[in-house]
Simulated scan of single mutants.
Amino acid sequence: MVIDSHCHLDFPDFESEIEDVVARARSAGVARMITISTRIRQFEKIRALIERFDDVYGSVGTHCLHAAEEDDVPLETILSLASHPKVVAIGEAGLDYHYDHSPRDVQARGFRKHIAAARQTGLPLVIHARQADDDIASILEEEMGKGAFTAVLHCFSSGGGLARRGLALGFYVSFSGILTFKTAEEIREVARFVPHDRLLVETDAPYLAPVPFRGKRNEPAYVVDTARVLAETIGVSASEIGTITTANAFRLFSKMPRPDGLAAAA
């Protein structure tokens, strides 16, 4: 059993075959899929999916690439939408200095708003970080001083410094198909020092398909391939990594119910 802790099932890539995509994930042993919001004003797409499929859960938030589009969305809207029984996270939000589609001050303002939502709801924040490690870490540390919240550094592709600073704040680190790429030894080195009780796996589907599917559209079923490489990287068995990351996912996304029979084991 494994959890895809981050995918985007609301994207057009899946629209014509969503039933088959979810069915393949189930057949591969994926017990839960968390479909992550990138635009609050498109939350109805997330709502439709989480209400359609029992094993699909969701988040609410504005991706930093769209921060300028939704700078006027108030915190109260996030809090209201987060009350849905199947919304288990806030975000994704953060900083992206690679594309810089939104001004950096607007990204930072949106990031802090999402942190406030995570703090007030008790739901974990899903953090996007790209080429902004120092600013991400500084904002997280400053905001933690205002009151505790929990979070995950999703699709980890940053330096070890951000991972260590995030871990020091009590956060989790999630690995995507990037972990399986031949050029990703630095990411595998990070995976080796992350405590086992802070590890998650994800697809970020439809992006970043793991080897042997690299270059194709990603989907939740492929999270098992990333989990297998993570197991090899940290020196545990495939079944152990499933147990570890599944327990971690249910601990972090605590609003998400466990399958019958799993509670005692995890």
Rank of each mutant, 00 (worst) to 15 (best):
M1F: 13
V2I: 15
V2Y: 15
H6S: 09
H6G: 12
V21N: 08
R24L: 11
A28Q: 10
R32C: 08
R32H: 08
M33C: 13
I40N: 02
F43E: 10
E44W: 12
L49K: 06
V56S: 07
V56M: 06
T62H: 01
A68E: 12
A68F: 02
D72H: 12
V73P: 00
L79Q: 11
S83F: 00
V88D: 14
H98P: 01
S102T: 02
D105H: 03
A117N: 02
A118I: 01
A118H: 02
R119G: 11
D133E: 15
I136A: 10
A137R: 02
A137T: 04
G145T: 08
G147S: 09
F149C: 03
T150Y: 03
A151H: 13
S158Y: 02
S158K: 01
A163W: 06
R164L: 14
V173E: 13
I187S: 11
E189D: 15
R198H: 15
A205E: 06
P206Q: 09
Y207H: 10
P212H: 13
E219V: 09
P220T: 14
R228W: 12
V236T: 06
S237V: 05
A238M: 02
I241D: 11
I244T: 11
S254K: 14
S254C: 12
P259Y: 09
L262F: 15
A263V: 10
A264E: 15
